[in-house]
Design a protein around this nucleic acid. Sequence first.
DNA 1: TCTGGGGTCCTAGGACCC
DNA 2: TCTGGGGTCCTAGGACCC
Length: 397
Amino acid sequence: MFVSREASILHADLDAFYASVEQRDDPRLRGRPVIVGGGVVLAASYEAKARGVRSAMGGRQARRLCPEAIVVAPRMSAYTAASRAVFEIFRQTTPLVEGLSVDEAFLDVGGLRRLVGPPTDIAARLRREVRHRVGLPITVGVARTKFLAKVASGVAKPDGLLVVPPDGELAFLHPLPVERLWGVGPVTATKLRERGIRTVGQVARLGEATLVSLLGAGAGRHLHALAHNRDPRPVQVGRRRASMGAQHALGGQPHSPADLDAVLAGLVDRVTRRMRAATRTGRTVTLRLRFADYSRATRSHTLPKATADTQPLLAAARALLRAALPEIDRRGITLLGVSVANLDGGHVQLSLPFERDPGAELDAAVDAVRDRFGSAALTRAVLLGRETGPEMPRLPD
DNA sequence: TCTGGGGTCCTAGGACCC
DNA sequence: TCTGGGGTCCTAGGACCC
């Protein structure tokens, strides 16, 4: 795979996104600690973060840490609108945009040097544009790989720009704490720390076999590659979400089966509405449970055909819930969730006329799938006749 | 630190097929 | 009666991310 020798991948990440939108829209909030969300912190402004407030923290604890914080209710529609406006600027910068969430994306600006300028200038202009046109602070990391661009933006936050030049990659990366690596969370960090490993450089010196024995094959190889800054993944345009879900936290008190069924029906209704609005269908229904001790479990069922209709998905969810009732009775329940996966049947189908050479059409379809969804998405290619045509043999690839 | 709501990716075992 | 190698799909759990 071709890997650019130039740092031309941008990771753009809005700072304290929800809180920044609130500060933008209400001048009284500017320069002051702002917490979005009451029961639990959805976002905290940098003034609140400086006092130790973190997202996902309980509201009570957050107010204890920062009593003068201004707590505001979330305004999802405002955040969605701001996100759209920012992604519009991303796409005006380059067609090669891969969104990661509402507030961050990778941009590949490698081909733009002659037309527009070097990546550093593009990144600086992107930040100005977002500030002027949407009124929000955004941090951009620039590097040769996606992974390193993301690390760079994390280091540069808030409201910063950091370029990692190709000849300075390991010097930048190796002194950082392991927690900066994408994919290292509390569990992995603890395992490494127990071995006295605190920096990325120490991970790099460890050797792949050691990491694999410590963390398992997948995580070990992944971490070894990142510590040596090996990340060949290209920026992928047009990725679509693979599942949609809804969940609801329940209080500690007991819940009757009828209560739970009503909650479940509401959740399935929410999800299927969103699926229909997005014209997606799905086959696999997963029931998500959290018990009184906060341990979690999932139960899933796969339907023969993908659908966005409430009725079959609710029926499947109900059957899963019924089967789980004895366990819920025993252990207590504090959260109920439903998600639908295998969206659109888990397949991507491209319809192309094949009046010409079917083999060439198939090759074109395969390339299109690979471009949009990555080679991992490509498990099978089938050529269908216009009406009822037979399946063609599997691709050799 | 006593915890919301939305996601992603990986692993592993078992059923089933040729 | 005991037994291969290769594969897919489904289910469940776990770690991680914003």
